[in-house]
Design a protein around this nucleic acid. Structure first.
Lengths: 197, 197
DNA sequence: TTGACAAAACTAATATGATTAGGAAATATA
DNA sequence: TATATTTCCTAATCATATTAGTTTTGTCAA
């Protein structure tokens, strides 16, 4: 069977998930595809290009998943669903998830757009809170920090205490939701004509 | 001047901070020390050993700093000081900070203890909230997730919106403090003899 | 002071991974 | 079917990590 980008993505994803993104090498990838290493260069520019493909793929899949699980939900329900799905993806695909983390170079429009699309989806899940201006950015950054932080600590084996990690994650999510609620409350009061004391 | 562990740590730290932990190589390190690469092996077992040294150094320094900035503080003041100092360290020493992230192998007592000591210090900063059982772990994991998440997104250049990052960090910290407060409140009520409705 | 021992440094060599050069084979297309 | 393109190959280069074996240097006691 001929090698094509689809198969490269498939094998690279598998290897990255099994051995870690850093463990992914052109040699192993070529071997998995039954060709010699230099032949890979007919398809991709190098190892960085392979990781970029993984990033594009991962970002698209994450975005699709985030959109899917938040359909018909809003407010806390949407955010909860999104965060749980995000964590689920990272746990199922640690290597691919790791590939989605680096910031693309400014010059790479395709990659940058993929990141932007995911950010837009995260942003959309916060819509119902009606946040204004900088608060939206704070909330979005908070959401990203918390989920990325938890998920990467979890992946690295840093959360080794016997206490259930699902519970800890739930606690963190609920804390975040409470903070959103608190930030949204005064806005809602204003919108409905009520004023604060 | 003769090479010793202190100089190795110094140069390795500088290189890691400037070029990133992944960019740190035995070649560059040897060059910085004015010796040939194989000569390094008289002092350290290999590149992994160098990174381990960086981790030990970073963990110790981080721990010392966390202890220092929380002296005489408790509750929200302690946690605020600690989180700001943590972020400050990671920003000033991105390479060394990165070295502190991996989880040590179980067999490495010295490294494991260094991690444990830092965890104990973080834990101590939460004392005043009087949390019970699993809640302590949830809070500790939340604290680690949030600060590690924010700091690593910041370091990777992922927070590129013009909105001030300090403000976003403050928002995140205050959100976390509010969650701690909320979790601690019922406990306090119980302790002072009051009961909930 | 000197001679022996250990530490630190060196050269040479090996292994692995990424990559380039240049050509052969397979495939698609005019 | 002839030709152009794509895919793959072998051979070679370069960088990094590491080991082997040897020389230099520093230390310390006789």
């Amino acid at each position: 069977m001929r090698v094509n980008l689809e198969r490269i993505l498939e094998e690279a994803g598998g290897l990255a998930n099994r051995r870690g993104l850093d463990g992914l090498s052109m040699n192993d990838l070529a071997q998995a595809l039954n060709i010699r290493t230099p032949s890979l260069y007919s398809h991709v520019a190098g190892i960085e290009a392979v990781k970029r493909l993984l990033a594009l793929h991962g970002l698209a899949e994450l975005d699709a998943m985030m959109s899917r699980v938040t359909i018909g939900k809003s407010g806390p329900d949407a955010v909860r669903a999104l965060l749980n799905a995000y964590r689920g993806f990272a746990r199922k695909n640690p290597g691919i998830y790791a590939a989605t983390i680096p910031t693309p170079p400014r010059s790479d429009r395709e990659w940058s757009s993929a990141v932007d699309r995911l950010m837009d989806t995260l942003h959309a899940s916060l819509q119902a809170y009606g946040l204004q201006g900088a608060e939206i950015i704070h909330a979005l950054r908070g959401l990203r920090s918390l989920v990325h932080g938890f998920v990467s600590l979890e992946a690295s084996g840093a959360l080794k205490h016997p206490v259930d990690r699902d519970e800890s994650f739930d606690w963190l999510v609920e804390s975040f939701l409470a903070a959103l609620e608190k930030m949204a409350a005064p806005l809602r009061a204003k919108q409905t004509g009520r004023t604060r004391a």
